[in-house]
Design a binder for these strands. Structure first.
Lengths: 256, 256
DNA sequence: CCCGTTCTTTTCACTAGATGGAAAGAGTAT
DNA sequence: ATACTCTTTCCATCTAGTGAAAAGAACGGG
């Protein structure tokens, strides 16, 4: 929201429409989307027609509403960086979830947010919200803190300086200076805890996943309702969590 | 590949580039993509830059290669038609897979192909290839046959007339007339079998998944290596398969 | 049944901005 | 050092995208 060098062409507009459609699970009309993306209706109409003809959006003639199309879904499973990570992690995540009885998630950094690539839920009646494909802010989540702790100093500084840190709960760390100290601690200890900092009533602990080269590739976390999860419980999972992360790491293809 | 009314604008070209990138899991250079989409390099370069700035593609400066970006992944999980189906189906599919010991898949029709939305694998050492997001031809797969059997007659005719049916194995039905008869049978019996018609050594059986209104929403199949799966075994799963499909159907939100 | 309202879809003259050949820059191999 | 290949930038040309406005479609209240 700071660098104002957004492209403006038809492609950028078309992609913006796709993103806007992402926020309308029930579909949206031309007019609604035009509002969302601040463009003339006729322009949006034409762009949607193009996208529909390529199956990037689907159009329901009876309701005159547009939704994201199958092509997007199809392409997503070819995002190789995600696929290889999630594939490598899935079995281990299942084991870890079984061992802890709680939700295990895998996340990477995307546009300064922690993006969840994979989730293994708990059979318990009360679980953790959020699903694969969601992203949450870095400063209030265990995975987010682990992920930014792996950034080079200049990028971390830029992030800490450039953003405002919204308070999601009373526990959220919003002061850049305190956050900086916190991240240094994460760097030193190689794990991060979020103690009801994003969602009231949820605690989580995360560790880095590193490939054979030691490169930080993702963060792995266990999240659980606070009422059944003390700080001790959380730290008790650390060994298993680290073992799981290591196992995933060894299975990772070394890219580039 | 018959109607030649493909759009040509910058948006269509940009989307074509995304699709092309989907076929390059290891990433591709500007030049390679330009070749793939038959466009001038400078044009492709500019479009890629736009897409990169919006995270639809990622660019590795060291290798100068482009890949599909996180945004595509993020959006995909908001393709509501897919998400609701897959969510509704997942638990039942797990049970069915456990009961049969084989791979269970859920598919819908997309651009005259059978697109797999969800897959629950087998713990057995020899499994079924193909993954979520892949699509296969309709005439040689059990799910494909079920899905096109639900088309209105005119659309089915158009499909049968308009396409050439490639022989994937010796068993593939390639003659439109025979395929038509076959589909009539599927309509009558409400299930379809693929007997090593797509992959040598793989047999599968599929049934329709219908929502509360009786609308065909997907196809559910069990696939297994032929060496451990006789025709009888396959048909033996039919009852469980139908029960599973019915269960999924009741759980489906009635869209539109 | 008609008219007002609100949405979608199409049209078209204008010109913003996309185009793509060419040249410069950056690597890499010979 | 030279040649080759690929990436990146440039810019004069003119295509093709733009968006206000009009036409069409659908709905509902009086």
């Amino acid at each position: 929201m700071s660098t104002a060098d957004e492209p403006q062409g038809m492609l950028a507009r078309g992609l913006a429409i796709l993103v806007a459609l992402g926020n309308h699970p029930e579909g949206a009309s031309v007019t609604e989307i035009a509002r969302d993306v601040s463009l003339p209706i006729s322009t949006v109409h034409r762009l949607l027609a193009t996208e529909a003809s390529l199956s990037f959006v689907s159009f329901d003639p009876s309701t005159k509403r547009y939704r994201l199309g199958f092509k997007v879904f199809e392409l997503a499973h070819k995002v190789s960086s995600v696929a290889s990570l999630a594939d490598a992690a899935r079995p281990t995540m299942r084991e870890l979830s079984a061992a802890t009885g709680e939700t295990v998630q895998l996340a990477v950094l995307s546009e300064n947010r922690t993006l969840f690539l994979e989730k293994v839920g708990t059979p318990q009646p009360i679980g953790i919200r959020g699903s694969v494909g969601d992203s949450e802010s870095v400063h209030a989540t265990s995975t987010g803190k682990v992920l930014i702790s792996g950034l080079p100093d200049d990028e971390l500084d830029a992030l800490l300086t450039g953003s405002a840190f919204e308070a999601h709960t009373a526990n959220t760390i919003t002061d850049p200076t305190r956050l900086r100290e916190h991240i240094e601690q994460v760097r030193a200890e190689q794990y991060a805890v979020a103690d009801e900092e994003f969602d009231e009533g949820v605690r989580a602990i995360a560790v880095p996943v590193r490939d054979g080269r030691g490169q930080l590739r993702a963060a792995l976390c266990v999240s659980a309702p606070a009422f059944r999860t003390s700080a001790e419980t959380l730290h008790g999972w650390l060994t298993e969590l680290r073992a799981a992360a290591a196992e995933i790491g060894t299975r990772l293809p070394l890219s580039s």
